[in-house]
């Protein structure tokens, strides 16, 4: 069976991101998955168990300080050589900022087509994408080269399929052009124990209706009770209620969780662009005409400062 390359996304602490497990699951439908680890020394060993659990038959390890020391270009350089030598049936990456950037460089290097934000890829290489605020479904194909595809988080349910991967070392040889953008510092900002926004199965999001930064604690409280990530509308971000990296929508993150809870969000088209493929949507809004009710599975017309504390209390009571 043909080899399918899956480019591993990891956290700073060498944790395999959930999206990578989704990619491995999708790759198994297309051929034999090989995980490609591009990182600092020790990265592959730290992640082997997880990658094996989800069916990686092979692990390519490219480990060097330089890979993390410069932005994106080194990863694309290593990957381009690997693609040329193994001629895989497809290359899958996460549709994250970095995943897309690596894929973009790879496409230019190989003169290969590129499809981003894919939600499904079939064995014949036809990819499904949702575009324009997720209002249109598009089926596309790479017409030059192999399917080079970035896949949206939460598009596939990760299913374990234990394998015993063989490890293969890749040499990291970089040119001067790969070392032009130097990463001099990585600064972690408040994050806590919450799951990452794009990967979370539940997202609790607050809008302008939350009123101020302090009241976002209510949104966080509900989120933490549900093991959810916190999101925000642009109006909430622009008003300084919550940091920009949590913005959901056209100019923020695209999320597709099992459950999206919108609190004090009206449902502008640009907000819907980032969340309308969520499986289930719950809304609390005091305006019964708010457009978001049009796509809500369960809506409460009411004051979020009454409804949400009561819901929190009720969840606590049922949990005992």
């Amino acid at each position: 069976m043909a080899e399918v390359l899956v480019v591993v996304e990891a956290t700073q602490a060498f944790g395999v991101k959930k999206v990578t497990l989704e990619l491995l699951t999708a790759a198994r439908e297309l051929g034999e998955p090989s995980a490609v680890v591009l990182g600092g020394p020790g990265a592959a060993a730290a992640m082997t168990d997880k990658l094996a659990e989800y069916g990686a038959r092979k692990i390519y390890a490219a480990e060097a300080e330089e890979i993390n020391g410069y932005l994106v270009a080194p990863k694309a350089a290593v990957l381009a050589k690997l693609v040329q030598s193994v001629a895989p049936a497809a290359v899958l990456l996460a549709s994250s900022q970095e995943g897309k950037e690596i894929a973009g460089r790879l496409a230019v290097k190989l003169g290969n087509g590129l499809l981003t934000d894919v939600v499904d890829l079939d064995a014949s290489g036809v990819a499904t994408q949702v575009v324009f605020a997720d209002s249109i479904i598009v089926k596309s194909k790479v017409s030059k080269g192999i399917p080079l595809v970035t896949v949206r988080p939460n598009a596939v349910t990760p299913v374990p399929a234990p394998a015993t991967p063989i490890r293969e070392e890749l040499t990291v040889e970089l040119s001067e052009a790969d070392k032009l953008a130097k990463v001099v510092d990585r600064v972690a900002e408040q994050k806590g124990a919450r799951p990452e926004l794009t990967e979370a199965s539940i997202v609790v999001a607050g809008g302008r209706g939350v009123g101020d930064a302090d009241s976002f604690k209510l949104v966080e409280e509900l989120a933490d009770l549900l093991g959810a990530a916190v999101g925000a509308s642009r109006a909430a971000v622009d008003s300084g209620f919550y940091p920009h990296q949590f913005q959901v929508g056209q100019t923020g993150k695209t999320v597709s969780p099992q459950l999206y809870i919108a609190l004090g969000i009206s449902g502008a088209i640009q907000h819907l662009a980032g969340m309308q493929t969520s499986k289930t949507i719950i809304t609390v809004n005091k305006d019964e005409e708010a457009p978001i009710f049009g796509l809500t599975d369960f809506g409460v017309v009411g004051d979020l400062f009454k409804v949400v504390p009561q819901a929190i209390e009720e969840i606590r009571r049922r949990k005992g």
Binding site: I136, V138, K141, G302
Partner: peptide, 29 residues
Amino acid sequence: TSAVVEHSKRPPRQAGHKVTDSGDGGVQM
């Protein structure tokens, strides 16, 4: 290097259930 084979409108989501809070909206949620 890539081509769109076809496109279609995504079926619009159906609005579900909506309740007006009369003191137990949180519990209903």
